[in-house]
Design a protein around this nucleic acid. Structure first.
Lengths: 254, 254
DNA sequence: CGCTCTCTTGAACAGAATCAAGAACGGTGG
DNA sequence: CCACCGTTCTTGATTCTGTTCAAGAGAGCG
């Protein structure tokens, strides 16, 4: 379970992994990333596409809006925020990317990146030159299918955020956000109930359409209610079920 | 400028079109739809993929969440709303689709549709069986590229909606919405300043994350300010520039 | 050790939601 | 052609959620 590994010794970062060899073939993000459901020889071929591994320091940008689109990136380790800046000075976080997730899909449509992607911590990505990738996916039905799936899921995921932003109240938004993180940590083999937030309250607020004070207040309230324990960036989920109830309390109806 | 035309005499619906022959090759949505930027022989081939034309009455569903995903649809005429219903009874409009736009991308990821798509007026679509489409796009680089572009633009478009929902005030949202419609009507050869809304205030509100009363109030205010003239579904845009100013008034900053 | 950035908490305020009533429209059938 | 019905839209009064403004406490870093 990991990004694209291209010549990366997995043990360099994750002591979990026993297998020390390199690239997609042995990447422990295989099940979450592009190789998901590819045949072994397809993975091998995909492997050859990964042009480079790139390390980023916290705060560094992987891509900036306006830059020409060349490559997709698979997050190998660490995490990123994706932000969109409108002409009128608005700047909003539109997502958070964790290991195994694909970055850069925004650039395909116009050959220019639309969003900024910034590392939330020291991170590493696998770069996949898109022209070569398109070629390969014309020759490998499995890779093509997997790529279509990934884009489709991105679309569906964003619709979920639209529902959150369009119809949820602050508590529902924050609960949904925490549960979403929890699920993604679990999928990566980490504890779903105890983790550290990589982003600030302001970034969470921007993503959830709330002010940072509101995020802080809601979290404090959840703490008082003993749904979670939170101290700065450290989160402990105490009562996932009640959180779920809050996340889908469906005030509206009819 | 039109959806996929598959064996449709364009004059049946649009008296504008002089050329009476059929399918993508002569569809007047060519520039907006899948054929955009394809070579003539690629268009011909795409043409063969369109399995059927389907007519829908106002209120009829083109697809329902939960149904198996088989085909993409290109809107030939009319318009649709896309809605997502969550388990907890929330139901939200996530988009409006006009002629030339592609519907069904949500189903690719899981082979099951996630969203409902309902006709806002009597409409017509071209169905494109996806398996055959994937095959064809492996053989035609141009079609593959175009499809990737369409999905990417869908992703970028949704991010735009996320910004709207996450950081705009009611007036900004409604102004943005009206300008968006205006732009899309213009792209289809209709007047960008005078058109009829196909959706109710409630549907607009659902899409914009507002209540129908708020939508109504904001529109009335725009009318008073002489930015628009609005009577029920009929809209006349009087001052596009001031509307644009409102749409990007960037209250926040820093 | 001091500085800055981040987070928490309180009090006052504002924008949109809610509740409510009535008007306008569109379709139907007499 | 007109009367009736349900749906959609408008408008007002009130309420409430989240924002804004403000101050102080913690944490992390050089």
């Amino acid at each position: 379970m990991q990004g694209n590994t291209a010549m990366l010794r997995t043990t360099e970062i994750f002591s979990i992994s026993k297998d020390v060899s390199v690239r997609c073939t042995n990447c422990n993000l295989r099940e979450l990333c592009l190789p998901e459901s590819l045949s072994p020889d397809e993975v091998l071929r995909l492997n050859g596409l990964v042009s480079a591994r790139r390390r980023l320091k916290k705060g560094e940008a992987l891509q900036r809006a306006g830059e020409p689109f060349k490559s997709l990136y698979a997050v190998r380790s660490g995490s990123f925020k994706t932000c969109i800046a409108t002409e009128d000075g608005r700047d909003q976080v539109t997502g958070f990317k964790m290991s195994g997730e694909i970055i850069g899909l925004d650039g395909i449509g116009t050959n220019t990146h639309i969003i900024d992607v910034v590392a939330l911590e020291d991170s590493e990505v696998c770069a996949i030159p898109f022209t070569r990738f398109e070629e390969a996916s014309r020759e490998m039905a499995g890779l093509q299918k997997q790529f279509h799936r990934i884009m489709s899921r991105e679309i569906v995921g964003e619709q979920g955020v639209m529902v959150l932003l369009g119809s949820m109240r602050a508590e529902e938004r924050v609960a949904t956000f925490l549960l979403n993180l929890s699920r993604r940590f679990r999928a990566r083999g980490y504890s779903p109930t105890e983790f550290n937030l990589r982003m600030t309250r302001e970034e969470i607020g921007s993503y959830l359409g709330l002010k940072l004070e509101t995020v802080s207040r809601v979290m404090s309230r959840f703490h008082e209610l003993e749904l979670i324990q939170i101290k700065q960036k450290h989160v402990l989920i105490l009562d996932p079920q009640r959180l779920k109830d809050i996340a889908s309390s469906a005030t509206s109806s009819v």
